[in-house]
């Protein structure tokens, strides 16, 4: 018991990094998801193709490789300093999950019944008004559960930033273990519990999102 407490205390020093990276990278991923998901539906082939390239590139390669590219390769190759490790972590996770989310956004917009578009045209709404008042409100409801699921995955993904020496929960766990090999099982158990407790509110919100989504109308 004493051990668990001291392990928890040590791990909680990483809480701020884990949570702040989760929040920043999910906001960035949502933004990327919306922008590229909508661009994917553009009338212009060039825009669609270009956005598709981003999406396939980031979905088709692994997050950890992307993280190392941003951290090691790009600064060496192009002499660009992308900022602190924290920012690099946020960019990598945000771009990676943004690519997945863009497919959720595109799929949801396309899943709105064609009759909705036709009714909007018959009422003489402009393309923009149709998107803003008719299509997106319905599409967003459909997206909510998937956004929740991907946010839970992003939480798990944040653990990778310990590999670019960011001091998150896993980083402090690894430090503890290296000075305390016999305690490794206990340390990793507490780490599991930490991530699970962090995921709980997200799991709860995702459930709620599923309800809203099923109802189709929020009220």
């Amino acid at each position: 018991m004493q051990d668990i407490l001291s392990i928890s205390q040590e791990l909680s020093r990483g809480l701020f990094v884990t949570i702040s990276i989760l929040i920043a990278s999910s906001l960035f991923a949502y933004l990327m998801g919306f922008i590229s998901g909508l661009l994917r539906l553009s009338k212009h082939t060039v825009i669609r193709k270009f956005t598709g390239l981003y999406i396939e590139l980031f979905r088709g390669t692994s997050l950890i490789v992307q993280l190392f590219w941003l951290y090691y390769a790009i600064p060496m190759l192009f002499g660009i300093n992308l900022g602190s490790n924290w920012i690099i972590g946020v960019i990598a996770i945000g771009l990676n999950y943004g690519a997945y989310l863009s497919e959720v956004v595109r799929g949801s917009v396309e899943a709105v019944d064609d009759g909705q578009t036709e009714a909007a045209i018959a009422l003489n709404l402009s393309s923009f008004q149709k998107m803003r008042y008719i299509i997106l409100p319905q599409a967003v409801r459909m997206m909510l559960p998937e956004f929740g699921n991907y946010t839970i995955q992003m939480l798990k993904g944040t653990a990778l930033v310990s590999l670019i020496s960011l001091n998150d929960i896993l980083y402090y766990g690894n430090i503890l273990r290296s000075s305390n090999l016999s305690q490794a099982p206990l340390i990793y158990l507490v780490i599991l519990i930490f991530y699970f407790v962090l995921a709980l509110p997200l799991i709860f919100l995702t459930r709620k999102a599923e309800d809203i989504s099923k109802k189709g109308v929020a009220n």
Binding site: D113, G115, A122, I134, G216, A218
Partner: peptide
């Protein structure tokens, strides 16, 4: 011009 459709196409939200 206005139109009424076979399947109503009301806005469900």
């Amino acid at each position: 011009i206005g139109m009424v459709f076979q399947h109503f196409n009301l806005f469900p939200h």
